[in-house]
Amino acid sequence: MKIAHISDFHLRHHIEGDNIKCGPDLIAEGARHIAAHSPDLVAITGDLVDYPLDALDDLDMVALGEKDLYLVRECFDSLSCPVAYVHGNHDHPTSFRRVFSDQPFDFDVQGFRVIIFFDEEGDHNVPQRVGAERARFYSVLSDDDPRPQIHLQHYLMVSV
């Protein structure tokens, strides 16, 4: 089982910015490098775009951010293995769900159970797993599925 892991693009292409370090060409090049390793799974663990957090309700900005999410997706759509996307604190959660609406959150890759979790940032920027995500987490730990598990999430399990 071979997993390629790439994270935190913070892409701004349609969304403008003055600190752009990672454009779609660079992400596409990364996807090509990953493809050369012939992974069985690609894990992309959040912050795909660098959505301005003070514009979460700005519909024009949401549309631009969604275009950037589609750009990321296009970079990896040609890979022959499953690609698992997690949203981060710099992604717009509603746009993310629209762009990746066909993505399963619990699936099998070569006998491994791959599970994607979506966490939130609570008070004082402390990450938390709440509501349905928390219930899902405890459910997968308490069922009798014998497969080894691969958990994909944006935040670290413990702070560094």
Binding site: I3, T45, G46, P148, L156
Partner: peptide, 19 residues
């Protein structure tokens, strides 16, 4: 959550980003 992961005996890999 980490304590709960450790309490379950199945082998696991946890991949994250952010940092």
């Amino acid at each position: 959550l980490k304590a709960a992961l450790l309490a379950d005996s199945r082998r696991k890999l946890v991949l994250s980003g952010h940092y």
